[in-house]
Design a protein around this nucleic acid. Structure first.
Length: 425
RNA sequence: GGAGAGAUGGGUGAGUGGCUGAAACCAGCAGUUUGCUAAACUGCCGUACUGGAAACGGUACCGAGGGUUCGAAUCCCUCUCCCUCCGCCA
């Protein structure tokens, strides 16, 4: 959530930022917020004045009673009646204004960083780094959805029976490969100084609000209505929320956490022709890294996280590129996002496998995640960041397709062999 | 699921209607003293909104939401959470 102060003091810049994110009616909405803000403050002043008077009278009455001046006390009591009705009305007005203002604020996305390229669609994202080369596949190369069936390692039909479409069952070497990758990614995160955490995978509405999934992406999450809990779409939500309502001691910064969880996405309405196989699932596994940083350090941390993800893909020997998302393609809460895409040889296209973002104070403002700045002595919002390191299914898809051998076997990257205990499928 | 107990500032913990935004202690910060460290002493030490250039004010907050009262941390109601015992159980 944007801070009111920011909007008050930088109206034009805020509007411009919202427009770069293609937020509809930016000017109208911002001005409406500012107008409500003015009304709200005025109402609060009136209310505070009325309450201050009432408090003064109450004190007098207490004094008079003590002194036995009963009649004078009664007179003062009569005066409070009018103040009471007035403050009640003002209180209601204030609540209405606050609610209206909040309802608008909550809908405003984060402002993009200066380096975010202009543009509205994925075509306008900017590639700025690439590693490796497109692999030369054997003549009889197949897409991963054929390979997994042929090798009997991932079974979509069984998943459909148990749950529904998009819930694959991993079997044999397929299951062992999943486990190996999870372990590998977590080990790498530990080596990079991240504290490993295992959070709940059901979250309450407050947590969903804290990181910005609610109310923006309500329809994307599975909702267990009996208990009003949501299945997490990413470990970002429970892990970042560990620091909700926290004033972090300066010597505990930076906070770096990593965790593995299954992730659940309804992906309502997004099923189409090129979401076959592992390209898009309702349930998948992901290792997430999260950092909490002082504002001045957060963009350095973003680069550090990107380096970490690069390292993982290089160790897995996968051809990949990094793109800077354009304003229109970026997420609601993000100020700057790098997407990592692996090359999927048999599909001959890029697959997103990681997204690393700096949210600046956007989440921290919702989370009330702060620290005491020793320079100013003030309590100030921190910056939050997160990234996938990595999401499994598309890595598996790329690995299976790119590593096909002429004899029909699939080579496992060297770094994973000790983890899974086999070197080919 | 049954029975009981509780929720106060970073921590421990006082506080049953006005003198309490909140004692005391610990931790923390600044200083005095001091070969160094330690100890001792003095002061400061919650959050949010809001007025003000600032100094300095106003309001709200003692789990959450309602209520009683001129006045509520304190009384009443509802909810949430936590703890203990019992039952069930991976």
């Amino acid at each position: 959530m944007l801070q009111l102060n920011t909007i008050r003091e930088n109206r034009e810049a805020v509007i411009a930022g919202l427009e770069r994110k293609y937020f509809k009616d930016a000017t109208v909405t911002v001005d409406k917020v500012l107008d409500l803000d003015k009304q709200r403050r005025q109402t609060q002043q009136e209310l505070d004045g009325a309450l201050a008077q009432a408090n003064g009278l109450a004190k007098q009455i207490g004094q008079l009673m003590k002194e036995g001046k009963k009649e004078e006390a009664e007179v003062a009591k009569a005066q409070t009646a009018e103040l009471k009705t007035r403050s009640k009305t003002l209180e209601e007005d204030l609540k209405v204004l606050e609610n209206e203002q909040n309802a608008l604020l909550v809908l405003l996305p984060n402002l993009p960083h200066q380096s975010v390229p202009p543009g509205r669609t994925p075509e306008e994202n900017v590639e700025f780094y690439a590693w490796g080369e497109k692999p030369t596949l054997p003549q009889n190369a197949k897409p991963h959805w054929e390979l997994i069936e042929e090798k009997n390692i991932i079974d979509f039909k069984l998943g459909t029976k148990i749950t529904g479409a998009g819930f694959p069952v991993y079997k044999g070497k397929g299951a062992r490969l999943q486990r190996a990758m999870i372990q590998f990614f977590l080990d790498e995160a530990n080596k990079a100084g991240y504290l490993e955490v295992q959070p709940p995978i059901l979250i309450n509405a407050e947590s969903g609000f804290g990181t910005g999934q609610l109310p923006d992406k309500e329809g994307q999450m599975y909702h267990a209505t009996a208990d009003d809990l949501y299945l997490i779409p990413t470990a970002e939500v429970p892990i970042t929320n560990l620091y909700r309502d926290v004033i972090v001691a300066e010597n505990e910064l930076p906070v770096k956490m990593a965790g593995y969880t299954p992730c659940f996405r309804r992906e309502a309405g997004s099923w189409g022709a090129h979401v076959r196989g592992l390209n898009r699932l309702h349930q998948f596994d992901k290792i997430e890294i999260v950092q909490i940083r002082k504002p001045a350090e957060s963009y350095g941390a973003l680069e550090e996280m990107a380096e970490h993800v690069k390292g993982l893909l290089q160790k897995l020997e996968l051809h990949f590129r990094i793109i800077r998302l354009c304003g229109g393609d970026m997420g609601f809460a993000s100020a700057l996002t790098y997407d990592f895409e692996v090359w999927s040889g048999a599909q001959a296209r890029w697959l997103e496998c990681s997204s690393v973002s700096n949210f600046e104070t956007f989440q921290a403002n919702r989370l009330k995640l702060r620290y005491k700045n020793p320079e100013t002595g003030k309590t100030e919002l921190l910056h939050t960041l997160n990234g996938s390191a990595l999401a499994l299914p598309r890595i598996v898809a790329a690995m299976l397709e790119n590593n096909q051998q002429p004899d029909g076997s699939i080579k496992i990257p060297q770094v994973l062999v000790p983890y899974c205990g086999f070197d080919s499928i």
